[in-house]
Write a protein that binds this DNA or RNA. Structure first.
Length: 873
RNA sequence: GGGGAUGUAGCUCAGCUGGCUAGAGCGCUUGACUGGCAGUCAAGAGGUCGUGGGUUCGACUCCCAUCUUCUCCA
């Protein structure tokens, strides 16, 4: 049975049991600050479990793309080492939201596995929760009794909270679970060791395939458990692992899906899978990681140096590292394997095919940039090693090792290898300690302590009225306190709200909540799944009274102008550059707009000009906004609405239309393009391979920008005393200036020559020293020049020159090198000793020193003093 | 979000504790040697020392702020 058939069978089975089949959510999570990637099938249903919104259907089944790279479930560094962990995997799941519970979940799971998929019953084991004293939970007798109907009670294994109690996070819905494990070892091995003794023991061939979670509790912030008003079922079955069992393979990497990737990697590296355990690990890592990265890119997450993008970069770099070191591929190769992946999986996942060229280009560019990083690191480590060799040190300190890793991104195993080749030990333990310290620091800085929700009023959904109004009468439904290292604030959920929560690139609204003459400041609005959270720095005294929520309208006006301008810009770019232009990211706030889009070369001056003119034309035309609210997705697509890459839409969508520009969008817009007023592009540049970024401003901000520019031009005109051909005038002035400067230099040289001659005449012999003491009027730089020339032309030379220019004055002393040595003269000390005469200070080197001050009258005395010193020496 | 590094000539970089007339290599221009090229030699052009403040007689160097790029952690 192929992977695609296994998936279809699963859907058919649960469809027959009254489940609605839902598509996979995006792997990259939006609107949930606690999560970067979908790491379990339940993520997209979180709101149902939390009771924030009602489910569309009480029974749902799906297959979810998941990514696990850190945390308790999986660690990136372990993937590929064994044969059954992945960064990305697919999770089959069936769900009950307050509908069926343990009995049906268990019966159906058993029936599907043994009757439909026809797995060998004697190879299956189940685990149940044994209870926990601290939580006060009991053994899951219900589950045991339902299982007993299908399976011998000896094969039912009781497990602790660690393995069989599932929690969403620190707080939230949770409950006992029951897992089905499968033993895929050979009969011979099975006869030697019983399968049930290997369950939950990390054996590569006795593996968990299905986890049935029975959600019946809510974990509160004080760690206590309270029963949920409704009980839910959440199950998850690893598609890859199921395929191993059904295809009679020994490892996840043997199934059809991975074989072609491994084969391609074998071709590129000329290393066979199975030849050596070390290279096998590398081959597995490459094939696993290339899949995770490609899907992430297809879902809209490009590699970057922060947040979710950084996780993707890390995965890619890990694969490149193994390819580079273990498979000895010294040039970009991952992009090539990604092509194979797209060809092979593109049919089941159209998003891969759609983004094929992006995936290829982005991966290739990332690989190149990693090689650059490695090169820098190699330079750095060579410097360190050389200095160690010079100093005959045999151990590299943890600080050095950590610096290489932390600052230069140089992989620790490469450091270790290179050090070993040079017979230098490295302090790995110290390094681990430093890394742990850095982790602690980061955790502390981002520590937020969220209290439980406190309900004021038992009512569910927030109604968003922001499209029609900017203020409304409303009341607080619930609130909670959030403590962060920097400040404490409150999150409010309102009954009705005009506040737009951050999303679709548009920043959240700010404003006030007025209640009984009290004005509570709302400094931000965000979305957590379906909830709109108003960030307030304080709480009103009276929480249960009605109040008025008022959005800062001035700010919103600027934001909406920028947002509408973004749509016009998008449309203009497609017109000028072509239909390949697609939005890859967007930021809209009150100050400016930033728009990332796919395009493969730098935009030309004329193109930018054209785009800007098109946008301005639309603004001048005063195109009215046509808002299509709550229309079916299909209808919107028929209208030609642009859907955004990396965005998931429901069945009903909102489309924003300005003339020919139609986009699916949930943001706030101006009622007519004429209110945008003004628009100008500030910059165009690259952000990633094949992705360009434009920054622009609109409205008053743009007007201010132009007024500022005009003012500068005005001033320039006034200064130049001309109105026409300013550029030409300036060019002439510049070239003239250049010429004049050269002339001045020439003249200065002559002047110095003259001065040199007069000064040379003033040289007197004192104690066998050619002494010069004089006062001049010259800028400092010329004095230096003059003195160095004199020094070169006279032996046994000693000069002290006082110079004055405007209010400032200075003393310079220069001494021939041989005098410095023979007579132990020190210009720095000498100049310091006399600098008080001019109310200043100074210093320098032994052969040349300067001092500055403001009292010219002292110059004469200072020079005399130096002369005396020389006479007496 | 937090930490570290980075920004100096067209490119790659050096410039230690404040004062070395801002430097090296490559590249560029001109000239010489050679039949021509490669090459060698010589001369030369090219720098707001990321930006804005501050400390100081004096800042590429120290302090503060800000931006760029890289990197690690969350």
């Amino acid at each position: 049975m192929k992977v695609s058939e296994i998936r279809a069978t699963f859907f058919d089975y649960f469809k027959a049991k009254g489940h609605e089949i839902q598509p996979s959510a995006l792997m990259v999570v939006k609107n949930d600050p606690t999560l970067m990637f979908t790491n379990a099938g339940m993520n997209q249903f979180k709101d149902y479990f939390l009771g924030n919104t009602d489910p569309k259907s009480k029974r749902i089944a799906n297959s979810q793309k998941c990514l696990r790279v850190s945390g308790k479930h999986n660690d990136l560094e372990e993937v590929g080492v064994d044969t059954y962990h992945h960064t990305m995997f697919e999770m089959l799941g069936n769900w009950s939201f307050g509908d069926y519970f343990k009995k049906e979940a268990i019966d159906w799971a058993w029936e599907l596995l043994t009757e439909v998929y026809k797995l060998d019953k004697s190879r299956l084991y189940v685990t149940v929760f044994e209870g926990d004293k601290i939580d006060g939970t009991k053994e899951d007798m219900e589950a045991i009794s339902f299982w007993s109907k299908h399976i011998n009670s000896e094969e039912i294994i009781k497990c602790s909270k660690k393995d069989n109690f599932w929690e969403m996070g620190d707080v939230g819905p949770c409950g006992p679970c029951s897992e089905i494990h499968m033993d895929i070892r050979s009969d011979y091995e099975r006869s030697k060791v019983k399968g049930r003794d290997l369950v939950n023991k990390d054996h590569p061939q006795v593996i968990e395939i299905w986890n049935l979670v029975f959600m019946e509790y809510l974990r509160k912030a004080d760690r206590s458990l309270v029963p949920l008003p409704q009980k839910h079922v959440d199950t998850g079955m690893g598609l890859e692992r199921l395929a191993v069992a059904l295809q009679g393979k020994k490892s996840n990497y043997d199934i059809d899906l991975f074989q072609s990737l491994i084969k391609k990697t074998e071709e590129l590296s000329k290393i066979k899978y199975g030849a050596n355990p070390k290279t096998d690990i590398a081959l597995r890592i490459v094939s696993d990681h290339v899949r995770a990265i490609s899907f992430s890119i297809a879902d809209g997450q490009l590699p970057s140096n922060t947040g979710a993008g950084y996780v993707i970069r890390r995965i890619l770099r890990r694969a490149v590292r193994y390819g580079y070191q273990v498979l000895e591929i010294k040039e970009p190769f991952m992009f090539d394997i990604a092509i194979t992946l797209v060809e092979q999986m593109g049919e089941a996942y159209p998003e891969l095919t759609n983004q094929k060229s992006l995936i290829e280009k982005v991966i290739k560019e990332e690989e190149k940039s990693f090689f650059r990083t490695l090169e820098q690191g190699i330079k750095k480590i060579n410097l360190t090693i050389n200095s160690h060799k010079e100093k005959k040190q045999e151990k590299m300190s943890s600080l050095h090792v950590f610096e290489l890793y932390d600052t230069y991104g140089f992989p620790i195993d490469l450091t270790s290898l290179i050090a070993k080749e040079n017979n230098i030990e490295i302090d790995i333990e110290g390094f681990q300690k430093l890394l742990e310290e850095q982790k602690q620091r980061s955790r502390k800085a981002s520590e937020i302590d969220t209290s439980d929700w406190i309900a004021i009023c038992d009512q569910k959904a927030t109604q968003f009225v922001g499209y029609d109004t900017s203020s409304t009468e409303t009341k607080i439904l619930r609130y909670r306190k959030v403590n962060t290292p920097k400040k404490d604030y409150f999150q409010l959920v309102l009954d009705k709200t005009p506040f737009y929560p951050e999303g679709g690139g548009q920043v959240g609204d700010t404003g006030f909540f007025e209640i009984e003459n009290e004005k509570i400041k709302i400094f931000n609005t965000k979305k957590e799944n379906e909830l709109i959270l108003h960030y307030a720095s304080s709480l009103p005294k009276n929480l249960s009274k009605k109040g008025i929520a008022i959005v800062d309208e001035k700010r919103r006006k600027k934001i909406s102008a920028n947002h509408s301008a973004t749509h016009l810009l998008h449309h203009a770019l497609r017109k000028v550059l072509g239909e390949h232009v697609e939005q890859k990211g967007s930021l809209v706030n009150e100050r400016y707009l930033r728009f990332d889009f796919s395009h493969f070369s730098k935009m030309k001056e004329e193109e930018l000009q054209q785009v800007q003119e098109l946008v301005l034309e639309q603004i001048n035309n005063g195109v009215p906004l046509t808002e299509h609210r709550e229309i079916p997705l299909n209808e919107a697509k028929k209208m030609g609405a642009m859907a955004l890459f990396g965005e998931k839409y429901g069945e009903k969508v909102r489309a924003i239309q300005f003339g020919n520009s139609i986009e699916l969008c949930g943001g706030i817009h101006v009622s007519s393009t004429s209110s945008i007023g003004m628009f100008t592009i500030l910059s165009e540049g690259a952000v990633a391979a094949g992705v360009r970024r434009i920054e622009a401003i609109s409205g008053m901000e743009a007007e201010k920008y132009f007024i500022g520019k005009a003012k500068i031009v005005d001033e320039v005109c006034k200064t130049l005393k001309t109105q026409k051909d300013i550029v030409k005038t300036i060019e002439t002035i510049l070239s003239k200036n250049h010429e004049l400067q050269k002339q001045i230099e020439e003249l200065n040289k002559e002047k110095i020559q003259l001065l040199k001659n007069t000064l040379t005449k003033k040289i007197t012999q004192i104690n066998g020293i050619n002494f010069l003491g004089a006062q001049v009027h010259l800028p400092n730089s010329s004095i230096k020049d003059l003195l160095f020339q004199l020094k070169n032309q006279n032996d046994n030379f000693f000069a002290v020159i006082g110079n004055s220019e405007n209010e400032k004055c200075g003393i310079s002393i220069i001494i021939s090198d041989n005098l410095v040595k023979e007579k132990q003269l020190n210009a720095s000390d000498l100049v310091k000793a006399v600098s008080h005469y001019i109310n200043g200070g100074g210093g320098g080197q032994s052969f040349f020193a300067t001092a500055g001050g403001r009292k010219k009258e002292g110059l004469k005395k200072a020079i005399e003093e130096i002369r005396k010193t020389i006479q007496e020496s």
